[in-house]
């Protein structure tokens, strides 16, 4: 009788993150090591933000999730959704292989969690009435940001922060409750935000918004597998990670196409804009992070040291 692992995530079947999980599952099945990964997508098992706790307690074997969702349990994870820390996808890949990530993986190990597949996804800004490229652009706008650190930075730029579920964004943009939104490229497309905005600032050569969304596994469960099963998982994960990086880049281009096709103006963030945001972030979200986390400064320095 094959060992069964249960993997939970929040996305639909055609989402890149589901495909990453599927590759691992397929590879493991093909390896014939008596291991079977059952995928529960679309929050059919656990809600998006309720996955890390069962994972760390061994009630769930695997998950693909934005690690910052667990920032309330391990505040260090907030560095995985920190403005201006990641410049582009290749830089993100270098971060994943750096001592910074090794330090984060030590934190995960405290919760009996390990990483199988590393991966970052990028995002941008959309404005209902105008383009958002630099901090001055968001002053006075009702803004919905994805992530605590972004809320702190945007508030620092004079934006008003409105918190609501991502499924409410479309209506809120349409009726004007919201005037600006900041989220991932894929969410922009899947929530059809392009129908409601005038201007889109995608992730380009420089981008502000990167979110670390790894495929995680319960460590004890992994350690309990046979050597062959562990190897099959590692092999599948390596293949999935290469795919993840490739597709993450394409995702940004696809979102630009969706917005352009809908007649939305496409704006670009210049390196100067990026620098201005990062200065602002240092005064707001970085500062708050360091105040909040005991070894925060050291972790931040490790991340900033990655070239």
């Amino acid at each position: 009788h094959a060992t069964e692992l249960r993997l939970s995530h929040q996305w639909s079947n055609n989402d890149i993150r589901h495909k990453v999980a599927q590759i691992v599952a397929d590879e493991v099945a093909a390896a014939n090591v008596d291991l079977d990964i059952k995928i529960f997508g679309s929050q059919s098992l656990f809600k998006a933000r309720e996955q890390y706790k069962p994972l760390s307690r061994g009630q769930l074997d695997m998950t693909v999730l934005p690690l910052s969702y667990a920032g309330g349990q391990q505040p260090a994870y907030n560095l995985t959704l920190m403005p201006g820390l990641v410049k582009n996808h290749d830089h993100a890949a270098r971060l994943s292989a750096s001592p910074f990530m090794a330090a984060l993986e030590e934190k995960m190990a405290q919760d009996d969690v390990m990483v199988l597949v590393h991966g970052y996804l990028a995002g941008g800004f959309a404005g209902k009435d105008k383009c958002i490229t630099k901090p001055e652009d968001v002053r006075g706008l009702q803004t919905r940001a994805a992530g605590k650190a972004f809320e702190q930075m945007l508030a620092g730029a004079g934006a008003s922060i409105a918190s609501m579920a991502s499924s409410e964004i479309y209506n809120a943009m349409q009726t004007g409750v919201l005037q600006a939104v900041n989220t991932s490229s894929s969410s922009f497309v899947s929530y059809r935000i392009y129908e409601q905005v005038k201007c889109y600032t995608p992730a380009g050569d420089v981008a502000l918004w990167f979110m670390y969304q790894p495929l995680l596994m319960n460590k004890s469960t992994f350690d309990g597998l046979t050597e062959a099963q562990q190897q099959a998982l590692r092999d599948g994960a390596a293949k999935a990670q290469a795919y993840y990086l490739d597709e993450a880049k394409k995702e940004d281009a696809a979102s630009v196409k969706a917005f352009a096709d809908a007649g939305v103006e496409i704006a670009q963030m210049t390196p100067e804009d990026f620098a201005a945001w990062r200065e602002l972030a240092k005064e707001t979200s970085y500062k708050a992070f360091i105040a909040d986390v005991a070894d925060g400064q050291a972790l931040l320095d490790m991340a900033l040291a990655v070239d």
Partner: peptide
């Protein structure tokens, strides 16, 4: 706060 004063609403939803 949001509609009349155009302010931030951070804690209310939660």
């Amino acid at each position: 706060i949001r509609y009349v004063l155009n302010g931030s609403t951070v804690w209310q939803t939660e």
